[in-house]
């Protein structure tokens, strides 16, 4: 019983991690959901063996289940639910703005990576032209390749 659940936890964590490494936000959200379920299952498993419902006066001779991890898992589920809803809203907003839910690169980082020295203002101005050209190229080809070409 416990071994099956432990394997389930491992499977959920590994599948979730694989989905997290994708570029599309919808996949990332599903991945986060899976990892979250894995963590909740882990919480539930941490309570030890199964038992009867832990109500006072109804336990008798039998061993009760540990109610604490269940309470913790419920809290974690509710929190994950709220945050997932927020992430979905964010993905929808991204789709509204860009027509896509790909996670974009940090443009400022790319701009700085393309700069050799950042001292003078002229160079920064050059950089701005370069990145504008780069953005134009990128929108036509849609890849990271134009960066080298522009250099």
């Amino acid at each position: 019983m416990s071994l099956v659940l432990a394997l389930c936890t491992a499977l959920l964590f590994s599948l979730g991690t694989w989905l997290l490494l994708q570029r599309r936000l919808t996949r990332i959200i599903i991945g986060l959901g899976l990892i979250g379920h894995g963590a909740n299952l882990l919480l539930l498993l941490s309570g030890g063996r199964r038992g009867v419902a832990p109500f006072i006066g109804q336990i008798g001779e039998r061993t009760p289940a540990d109610p604490m991890p269940q309470a913790l898992a419920l809290t974690a589920i509710v929190i994950a639910f709220g945050v997932t809803a927020f992430l979905l809203a964010l993905a929808y907003r991204s789709w509204q703005l860009t027509g896509d839910d790909l996670v974009e690169d940090d443009l400022e980082d790319r701009r700085i990576a393309a700069t050799r020295s950042t001292a003078s203002d002229e160079e920064v101005a050059d950089q701005r032209e370069l990145s504008a050209a780069e953005a134009a190229l990128e929108s036509s080809t849609g890849g990271a390749a134009p960066l080298e070409e522009a250099e």
């Binding site: 990892i35 979250g36 882990l42 919480l43 991890p69 913790l72 992430l87 996670v103």
Partner: peptide, 28 residues
């Protein structure tokens, strides 16, 4: 903001999930 917000939310969610897993292991 949406672009950077995504990175921020996702990375923090991963950290939080890791915290939940750590708490589960500590409780076990």
């Amino acid at each position: 903001q949406v672009r950077t917000g995504m990175t921020y939310v996702v990375i923090n969610l991963i950290a939080s999930t890791l915290l939940v897993a750590t708490i589960g292991l500590l409780y076990a």
